[in-house]
Amino acid sequence: MGPIAINGLISANLNLVIAVFLGMGFGFVLEASGFSSARNIAGTFYGYNFVVVRVFFTAVIVTMVGLLYLSYFGWLNLSQIFILPTYLPSMITGSIIMGVGMIIGGFCPGTSFAAVAIGKIDALFFAIGLFIGIFLFAEVYPLIEKFYLSGYLGHVTLTDLTGIKPGWWAFGFTVIALIAFWVTASIEKKVRKKIKEYKF
């Protein structure tokens, strides 16, 4: 059955229209969960606000578990969905750079767009920075092309790599996330007492 656009149950154009609505859902959740505030996002890394961790990991485990059930019911063919390709060295470097960018800028691309929508100038500047960053990347691309394409592992999943069934991964992630939720809740309680000025 699914993914229905791949299996030709809806037209390509309708898929694009639906994309707008799906994006709206995503943007809505981002803004409504408080991701439009750079302080909320940065707060994660100083232990005074774990909203990001909560929203993020809840989303991950709900999707992981949901995907397995959907595939079990025969509603969704997991072999037809897009799997992120892995290029080890460049992805590791990229993630480190992204992490630094996130803590300095206080946003990530999705949240900055949601924040621009409600009138945050800092988010607008972050988004402009994104454009510049990608432009710079395109300019230096010929120099780093080899590095960019090195260490290609293909569109591998955790199961391809380890041979452990996806059910175990989903279960493992869920348990870790649930423990993390309870632990962060208690950390937050302690830290919030110290930081008088910013409460959530």
Binding site: V62, G66, Y69, L70, Y72, F73, G74, W75
Partner: peptide
């Protein structure tokens, strides 16, 4: 609600 959908899935699955 999510749980219900999954239950429905279990019931209706072939």
């Amino acid at each position: 609600l999510f749980l219900l959908v999954i239950v429905v899935g279990f019931i209706t699955m072939k």
